Simulated assay, not measured.
Amino acid sequence: MIEIRNLSFGYTRKSLLFKDLDLSLRRGHIYGLLGKNGAGKSTLLKNMIGLAYPQAGSCSFNGINVSGRPVAVLEEVYFLAEEVFVPSLTPEQFAASTAAFYPKFSNADFYQYLKALDVDATAAMDKQSFGQQKKAMIAFGLATNTSLLVMDEPTNGLDIPSKVQFRKLIASLLTEDRCIIISTHQVRDLDSLIDTLLILHDREIVVNHPIEEITEKITFGVFNDTTGMQVLYEEDGMRGKNAIIKNTSGKFSKMDLELFFNAVTTGSNTLIQILKAD
């Protein structure tokens, strides 16, 4: 699906966001892309779809170089940017004027998603709140039925019920032929949604692992005392120590995305080494 090879990119030649970055993304997965503010998550997404041009290396979609934005790529990719800029049209008018660019667009799906997200199809989008605008564009993006769906901070501006509905819709859309990539700094919004975690840190993808594989190797828990445990990372919490320890029992625990992200981005090299071990 997506193949990035030796990608180097920077907004100036003296300061690179990525250097010799490699990444492969496959169909049938929901990827969660995490990183600190300024790490380059949005820029990486734009490189994936041809909206940014690398200084070296390449990015291809289904074997086609995305540079130049060929039609074969555009009709199979939908990108929802963090900031949405809507025209002075209603959602139904927007779909009528734009859907033709996506061969697999479904009007029936579009109205179903608008209803699920509580969006009025006949209200001018530019007169609505940012959250309503975002939901209208999410509904349109889902209805394109593209094989690659890329979303940058899609839950920004959404209230709690809308976030819950968003997660339900995304989970229902995944098929063996589709790849979904969601970038966010709101770690908890990806909880129980993604199946593969990507973490961008210090110009590298330092984590690229299925959630199931992570929880096979490490355990998350709250402990009164971690003395004598193989602690890989811990933080003080209200109920005790929130800790990541090596999984020696063979039992699975629930993934704590926020704790794991903090561990990785504060330099837990042992944790990374355990994940990379066969």
Rank of each mutant, 00 (worst) to 15 (best):
M1D: 07
I2N: 15
Y11P: 13
R13I: 08
R13P: 05
L16A: 10
D20C: 04
D20A: 07
L21K: 01
L23R: 10
L23H: 09
S24D: 10
S24P: 11
G28A: 07
G32H: 13
L34D: 03
K36H: 14
L45H: 06
I49W: 04
G50P: 00
L51C: 03
Y53C: 13
P54C: 02
P54G: 13
A56D: 12
A56H: 08
S58L: 13
S58E: 03
G63E: 15
N65T: 10
N65P: 07
P70N: 12
V77P: 00
F79D: 01
L80C: 11
E83K: 01
P87W: 00
P91I: 04
E92C: 05
Q93V: 14
Q93C: 15
A96N: 11
T98A: 01
A100W: 12
Y102E: 03
P103S: 01
N107E: 08
F110N: 02
K115I: 14
K115T: 10
A123S: 12
M125V: 15
M125R: 09
D126M: 01
D126V: 08
Q128L: 07
F130P: 08
G131T: 12
Q132L: 08
K134D: 10
K134M: 14
K135T: 07
K135E: 06
M137T: 14
A139N: 02
F140H: 11
F140I: 12
L142E: 07
N145I: 11
T155L: 11
T155W: 02
I160N: 07
P161Y: 11
V164E: 15
V164C: 13
Q165C: 08
F166A: 02
K168Y: 13
L169Q: 05
S172M: 09
T175E: 10
D177V: 12
R178Y: 14
S183Q: 05
T184P: 06
T184S: 10
H185T: 07
Q186G: 14
V187D: 06
V187K: 00
R188G: 07
R188Q: 01
D189C: 05
D189M: 03
L190N: 00
D191Q: 06
S192T: 15
I194Q: 05
D195F: 12
T196S: 07
L197I: 12
I199R: 06
R203F: 15
R203C: 10
E204Y: 06
V207M: 00
N208C: 06
H209S: 00
E212W: 14
I214D: 04
I214V: 13
T219Y: 13
T219W: 14
F223T: 09
N224W: 10
G228V: 12
M229N: 03
V231C: 01
L232S: 04
D236Y: 14
M238V: 08
A243P: 00
I245V: 07
I245L: 01
N247H: 09
S249M: 13
K251W: 12
F252W: 05
F252S: 09
K254F: 06
D256M: 11
L257C: 01
T265N: 11
T266H: 00
S268F: 03
T270W: 12
Q273P: 07
I274M: 06
